[in-house]
Design a protein around this nucleic acid. Structure first.
Lengths: 258, 258
DNA sequence: CAGTGGTCTAGACCACGTG
DNA sequence: ACGTGGTCTAGACCACTGA
């Protein structure tokens, strides 16, 4: 039984090669890219495949292109993947930091209206509730309050939360987080936040409310994460043709935590 | 001279039709979409074109799809376009609100290191500096501090900033904003912010630093916008295959304002 | 004007999922 | 076993850019 690692699809290998070329300085901000016909030659791919790769880079804000003119480089690619935006551990490790966490509470409870709305459940359905303080080194950076749907929460309860990455362990169990919607806003630390993070009440926190679904579109968890002051920011791209991001009034959510 | 409005490309009409169908309840969250072959029939399009439309919806977080199974609906499409994320006026009007603005300062000055970095200029190159307080009705919601490259700033100086939308007017002059990168974080209101927004110093603000480029990839402006408390939040999507958004340590920028 | 990216078609094979 | 989406090819026409 040889475990032949399947090669990634060609369009991804092309995108990776171009990202590497930009990161290593072959092309820098403002430079023109080779034409699509030239890239077809270079990678032995059809035009459709080359355009698939370029569309990926365009969505990342790395390049821009217009009819009639060659594409240009806009910015260095950021080295972030989906799991690094989802998992605090994976993110921190990718930055060479030492992530850790302290579990404040893990319990089974029953869905309130907000839970029901986020998780497509009925009020009163069982869910799991996890509160953790996340640290880089020994500095508290974020408090995370996550509500899991019952089958996922049951698995979470079996994980050593102080030592392992939830998302890595759940992936091994076949629970895949595939898609997320995030609401980002600013809040003042309340008494609970303040105590957990070791800051004064009223301190500005960056609030990220996240709803994550499986590849099948089934909600798996929702979370209310609050980051200390300027410790963290989110970067996003958008362009004329895209709607990946939007500004909304209020949070679009209940003002209270749960 | 008849001004025949060119029809949008087929892939966009398909995406629009599907968005409408979802918004109007033909498909709701969790429903399966028709197969790609069925959509080809329905719209008289080739598979490549249908897939182009579906890729758009996937990037918006509206649908998800996996090999072997039909696509599913994840969420209602948000009705936001690029200009609504860029332009406070366009955004507010799309929500039925009454946007207004008060110009605090408009001046010509010389680029510092931060300006130079954002706008691909040298330190000391001339730029234009605009500070405005933006309101919904009569409530201050945001203070915006924008630095324009010289040729754009020169045009901005000719606009009636209290009455017109900068971006709409600039577009008429052939200055098109095509791509933007945003850094979102939380800060405490400083004395200047507090006075302009009518809040206490230390109040949490949502900070959005934005860098905007033309279709050619040339930087046109960068801005530091600060929103009052919970007035506004940003919504973003991401999925396994995409890198539209990322979390970073700090702001990736100088801590000071300019 | 030649070269470019944007759009679109018509096929094909594969791996995966669901019944 | 069959239908599905993911990947890939080979062509074509157009509108636009830029020398």
């Amino acid at each position: 039984m040889s475990t032949l690692t399947a090669q990634p699809p060609l369009h991804r290998r092309i995108a990776d090669a171009l990202r590497r070329a930009i990161r290593s300085g072959v092309y820098t901000r403002g430079d023109q890219l080779p034409s699509e016909r030239e890239l077809m030659e270079e990678f032995g791919a059809s035009r459709g495949t080359v355009r698939h790769a370029l569309a990926t880079l365009r969505a990342e804000g790395v390049i821009a292109s217009r009819k009639g003119a060659r594409g240009v480089v806009l910015a260095e690619p950021r080295s972030q993947s989906f799991s690094e935006l989802l998992s605090f551990s994976a993110w921190a490790r990718s930055l060479g930091e030492d992530p850790s966490g302290r579990v404040v509470e893990l319990s089974r409870r029953y869905a309130d209206a907000t839970d029901a709305q986020h998780l497509d459940l009925g009020e009163g359905d069982p869910v799991f509730w996890l509160v953790r303080v996340r640290m880089l080194g020994t500095t508290p950076v974020m408090v995370e309050r996550t509500t899991f749907v019952e089958p996922v929460g049951r698995l979470v309860a079996t994980i050593d939360l102080e030592a392992e990455s939830i998302y890595a362990r759940l992936a091994e169990q076949g629970v895949v987080f595939a898609q997320a919607r995030h609401w980002v806003s600013a809040v003042a630390a309340d008494d609970d936040d303040a105590e957990l993070l070791g800051v004064e009440p009223g301190t500005p926190l960056l609030r990220q409310v996240r709803r994550t679904t499986s590849p099948e579109g089934v909600p798996l968890e929702w979370a209310d994460d609050r980051y200390v002051g300027e410790a963290v920011s989110f970067v996003l791209e958008n362009s004329s043709g895209s709607r990946h991001a939007a500004r909304v009034i209020g949070t679009g959510l209940d003002g209270d935590r749960r």
